[in-house]
Design a binder for these strands. Structure first.
Lengths: 205, 205
DNA sequence: CCTCGGCGAGACATAATCGTCTCATCGAGA
DNA sequence: TCTCGATGAGACGATTATGTCTCGCCGAGG
């Protein structure tokens, strides 16, 4: 038998340290890439290298856990965004806000070479987003001359830029998401001042 | 003394092998990230590992040479695009075409963690592109509520998407560049069917 | 046919990292 | 104060990649 108080404190502390390690890992990985060593992570987390192995048995386990946390965080924010009950433009803005709020963790999911469960990302994150785009096309708010896949890719590319300029403090999170939504929906031409040049697309694929 | 013919053949062969190694390095690095080993590169290039060291004394030298080649290639294409003599929308399309033509090599320049001379990239590649955006704003073709820096970043994000969908063979190079240009300039709303939702931007920073 | 230069294969030493282990220390709780 | 558990520091062997070297091979040119 053991005292509950002790266990409670301990497990709370464990969670705290575990989170610190994962955050540090996200930071270091996004900064130095896959070549970041366990010592780098330990230093960034302010713990000893051995401590990391007490929480994550191997490097692979750490990376997998990080990926898991990133997916969960992104999924939670996407779910809370309640995309289905917002207008499409508002839903797009919420998606960007969710991505920016995820911050560095989100970039873990977009870095090709790591331990990311692509199927989970697809199902938990990309699918609900893609649903917004499909709805946008159905409602006539989004172009239908491009596949939803490509629209999602384009929006995703802009989302990464939002992450970057919000991380650089070039713009605040709110401004950044407004900019991305505005550019994606209406483009970079001065508002209301369209035309002046024709850009025919090859008829839809 | 030595025969010219021998030297000529040899140096031609050397150039050929050197290029093969650099191409393989670009391919492997973009696929596996910084963790790619010299053996990976050698295998991809179809040469022995020792041969790489005969051409590039160290791993660093290989990466630096690769970066150099990538910068030169991108710079050459940007220069040949003759951006200053095209309309802004046409210039944007040419930029995307140049990026897509660069292919995998271009992604070397955008991968944060490597031996890229940021100043050279800034001066040789980003500056001429930024000039197009500045001109676009001056001519009233591009919004002025965003800094040119941010516009370039946004366009860059879309350029990477172009690279990706062209690499996936989802779209041909021409289509991809047309799509990106069109989305960037006019957005994802159906053409001519604007309105329906207001998205006020915070007044320019 | 013979020589020669470069290539592939692989052995080798070195360095870095991983993963395990031990030990001294430190703080929380009895 | 004393005990216990977890931490940080660091030693250790194992693994892996780097960079150097040698050796056998092959194809080009004489």
């Amino acid at each position: 038998m053991f005292t509950y108080s002790t266990m409670a404190t301990t497990s709370a502390v464990r969670d705290h340290i575990s989170t610190a390690i994962l955050d540090a890992a996200a930071l270091v990985l996004s900064a130095k890439g896959d070549t970041a060593s366990m010592e780098d992570v330990a230093a960034a987390a302010g713990v000893g290298r051995a401590t990391i192995y007490r929480y994550f048995p191997s490097r692979d386990d750490l990376l997998s856990a990080l990926s898991e946390v990133a997916i969960d965080d992104a999924h939670r924010r996407i779910t809370e965004a309640d995309l289905a009950r917002a207008t499409v433009p508002e839903a797009l803005a919420r998606i960007i806000r969710a991505v920016v709020a995820c911050g560095i963790k989100f970039s873990v999911l977009t870095s090709d070479h790591s331990h990311v469960d692509r199927n989970r990302v697809e199902r938990l994150i990309r699918d609900p987003i893609q649903a917004v785009f499909r709805r946008g096309q159905d409602e006539g708010v989004l172009r239908t001359d491009l596949t939803t896949d490509i629209l999602v890719d384009l929006f995703g590319g802009l989302a990464k830029v939002a992450l970057q300029i919000a991380g650089n403090d070039e713009l605040g999170a709110e401004e950044a998401s407004a900019v991305i939504t505005s550019i994606f929906l209406d483009g970079a031409r001065p508002t209301g001042d369209a035309a002046a040049d024709s850009h025919p697309l090859p008829s839809s694929t």
